[in-house]
Amino acid sequence: MLPGVVGTIQATEAVKLLLGIGEPLIGRLLTYDALGMRFREVRLRRDPKCPLCGTAPTITDLAVHRNGAGGACDVSPDGHPEGVAAAVAPKAGG
């Protein structure tokens, strides 16, 4: 049932974006805890040091994905401010 909730949120956001209506989840991470039955919202900010969309990007094409490094960039984590990553663990499934 859990993927149904998240997938339906994705569908809702898609329709809103296509129609240009409402407030999309840009810069907001919505988390869902099925056992506690709670939604939580975490504000997300752009990271100026982001290697992709930051002020001095080091990723300007997809070459980083060709080296078999799991697609992740090879940046040191201490180059980034404490993000929400610590508070919100990334989810593995799809």
């Binding site: 840009i26 991470l29 869902y32 099925a34 752009r46 969309c53």
Partner: peptide
């Protein structure tokens, strides 16, 4: 969107309007 066990999350990454997954 992503899920793990009993938790899920969703957000929208819009280029130059907000953060990306790497942020």
């Amino acid at each position: 969107g992503s899920i793990f066990q009993f938790e899920g999350m969703a957000t929208v990454f819009a280029p130059n309007q907000g953060p990306c997954y790497r942020c």
